[in-house]
Each structure stands twice: as structure tokens, then as C-alpha cells.
């Protein structure tokens, strides 16, 4: 077991008073709240911060913790064991004071409660009969192409369920999920009864899958439309041309009009995403981007000089000259 330095977790001094502890906790709770935070491991950090605060805000718990900490019963980086004769004045009453979804660490349990999490939830299990199992929420990232044609995905989940003795056990299960063609970002798919098992005859929860799109190397999704930046040469843009363009439904030929320019947008009808029922289809919107080679041959340079002479009236910086 690892010794948890609650002061370090809350980024405070060990002499910090109650208001400093509270202020730091509030700040970190906002930073790591899993519904807000973009930090990695936000959920684990949020729990850790909550645990640290639960101990340090309570003068009695804090005193016990300080005692253990001062005894030097931990070695940095090494494992931690509470002293064999350790007896917390709090041991055992955790079930009544804490909410069951507050999952504190083994370290916390070893100091403040002899009740392991299995036991704690088992008690809860007996207390509230007939409770519906919790829904599980998962995000699955699909490539655009997969979402478009549909695909099969394996999802590994960990569900908690009561065993014969009523204590809560974790079970890994794997689901093979067939995802229908045409799902869109943010869409939810409900797998009825695949969530956590109900308690005391309560119904099982559901598994809700939320579709996310993995970033695509060149397509961007904008609602039902697909955006693509298409590099073209300056002569293709000047003279007009027909070029091959990738779409979700394979390559298509796109006609570039004469005197096209960087930033011009061309619409390829019906090559975007398709709505659930299939009745509405988005478009692919192609933005031209004139692209030049890194180096020009001497022949090309000569031609450019010639071009410069015959187009000498063109001034792209006219706007600056007023």
C-alpha cells in the first residue's frame, strides 16, 4: 500500500489552517471535477483530493493522520503498513457517515475504517432492497469511415455485481457491438440491461454508448457536412481543371472553374453524412488552397518572369495603398 501524503495532494503546508484547507480543496475540486476537467486522470485526482479533504477537514481524523505521518511509518516510494497496534477511533463508523459512491483508497480504509469496500456495499445491498442497477456510460471513438458504413466493435467493461453472499464483486465482460451505418457524433446507443445488475430484484441498468469521431487525417465533420481542404496548383486554379477528390463514398471527379482562388469553396452534393433515416444527406464542402512547389526549375522561373510581365497590372496589395 502506498502512503498518501494528503498535504501534498491538497498542495498545502502541514500547518495549514482549516480555511486554507477548504480553499485549496475547492480550487482543486473545480480543477479536477471529471465533468469539467480536461486534465488527464481527472477522475482519480478528484477522488484523491476528496479523500485528502475528508481527512484534513476533520480535526480528529487529521490528528490521527498527523500522528501516523510523524511516526515515519512510511518510506518514500516504499510500501506502507499501519502500525500493528493501530486502532482508529473512527474504525467501523464509516458506513454511516460516508456516501457509498465515495470510493476511498485502501490506504484510507487501513487507517479510518476496517470495513472494506465489498463489505460496505454489501450492507448497503441489504438496506435498500429492490434498487435498479446503475447505468454505465461509455464513449467509443470511431473513424469516420467506420461510422459511415457501420462496424463491429469489442467493448471491454468492468461491472460490479453482487455474488451469492451479497458482497459486490467486479467482473470483466466483453461485448461485441455491431454499430449500424450512419451514426453521428454525440449519438447515444442504448444497450438495455447491459449496465450494472439490479439489487434485490431491481432491474439491471443500461449501457449507454456515446459515439465520438476520431480525428481524421483530412476530413473534418461540420454537422452533416464533410469539410476538405483541397490543394491545387496555381495553373489548375487559373485555367480550370478536373481533379480527383476523396469523399467518404470513394473518389469523385471535381471540376475546378477557371480563375479559381485559394479559399473558394466548392460543394459536392450528397457526399456528406447521412441522417439516421437516410432521408437527409449532407454535402462535402471543398475549400481550395493554391499550392506552389518548394523549388522551381530555371525554365519555370523564366515562365514566371514572362507571366509577371503580362500580368503587371495585377496588384494583390491594393488595399494597403490608400
Amino acid at each position: 500500500m502506498e502512503f498518501k501524503d494528503y498535504y501534498k495532494i491538497l498542495a498545502i503546508d502541514e500547518k495549514a489552517n482549516a480555511s486554507v484547507i477548504k480553499a485549496s480543496y475547492r480550487k482543486l475540486a473545480r480543477k479536477y471535477h471529471p465533468d469539467v476537467s480536461k486534465e488527464e486522470n481527472a477522475e482519480a485526482q478528484f477522488k484523491e483530493v476528496g479523500e485528502a479533504y475528508a481527512v484534513l477537514k476533520d480535526p480528529e481524523k487529521r490528528a490521527e493522520y498527523d500522528l501516523l505521518r510523524a511516526q515515519g511509518t512510511y518510506r518514500s516510494g516504499g510500501s506502507y503498513q499501519p502500525p500493528p497496534d493501530w486502532q482508529s477511533s473512527h474504525a467501523g463508523n464509516r458506513t454511516h457517515s460516508q456516501r457509498t459512491d465515495e470510493d476511498f483508497s485502501d490506504f484510507f480504509d487501513s487507517i479510518f475504517g476496517a470495513h472494506g469496500s465489498g463489505f460496505r456495499q454489501a450492507e448497503d445491498f441489504q438496506r435498500s432492497t429492490n434498487r435498479r442497477g446503475r447505468d454505465l456510460h461509455y464513449k467509443i471513438a470511431l473513424f469516420l469511415e467506420e461510422a459511415f458504413v457501420g462496424c463491429q466493435r469489442q467493448i471491454a467493461l468492468r461491472v460490479s455485481e453482487p455474488d451469492q453472499n451479497g458482497s459486490i464483486k467486479q467482473r470483466d465482460k466483453t461485448l461485441n457491438v455491431k454499430i449500424p451505418a450512419g451514426v453521428t457524433e454525440g449519438q447515444h446507443i442504448r444497450l438495455t440491461g447491459q449496465g450494472e445488475l439490479g439489487i434485490g430484484g431491481g432491474k439491471a441498468g443500461d449501457l449507454l454508448l456515446e459515439i465520438e469521431f476520431a480525428p481524421h487525417p483530412y476530413f473534418t465533420v461540420d454537422g452533416m457536412n464533410i469539410l476538405l481542404t483541397l490543394p491545387v496548383t496555381c495553373w489548375e486554379a487559373a485555367l480550370g481543371s478536373t481533379v480527383e477528390v476523396p469523399t467518404l463514398r470513394g473518389k469523385v471527379k471535381l471540376k475546378i472553374p477557371q480563375a479559381a482562388n485559394s479559399g473558394n469553396k466548392l460543394r459536392i452534393k450528397g457526399k456528406g453524412l447521412i441522417s439516421k433515416g437516410g432521408e437527409i444527406s449532407g454535402d462535402q464542402i471543398v475549400t481550395l488552397q493554391v499550392s506552389l512547389p518548394k523549388e522551381h526549375s530555371s525554365e519555370a522561373k523564366a515562365l514566371y518572369r514572362q507571366l509577371a510581365e503580362c500580368e503587371s497590372h495585377f496588384n494583390p496589395r491594393q488595399a494597403f495603398e490608400r
Binding site: V177, I189, L191
Partner: peptide
């Protein structure tokens, strides 16, 4: 890891109210 279960999603899963 326990056995895997196959779940096939049909259109009724998509309209959840």
C-alpha cells in the same frame, strides 16, 4: 476475462426516450 457476448444494435436502440 469471461466469455464475450454479442450484441447487435438495431434501429430501436437509436431512439431512446
Amino acid at each position: 476475462m469471461s466469455k464475450s457476448e454479442i450484441v447487435i444494435i438495431d434501429s430501436q436502440h437509436e431512439h431512446i426516450l
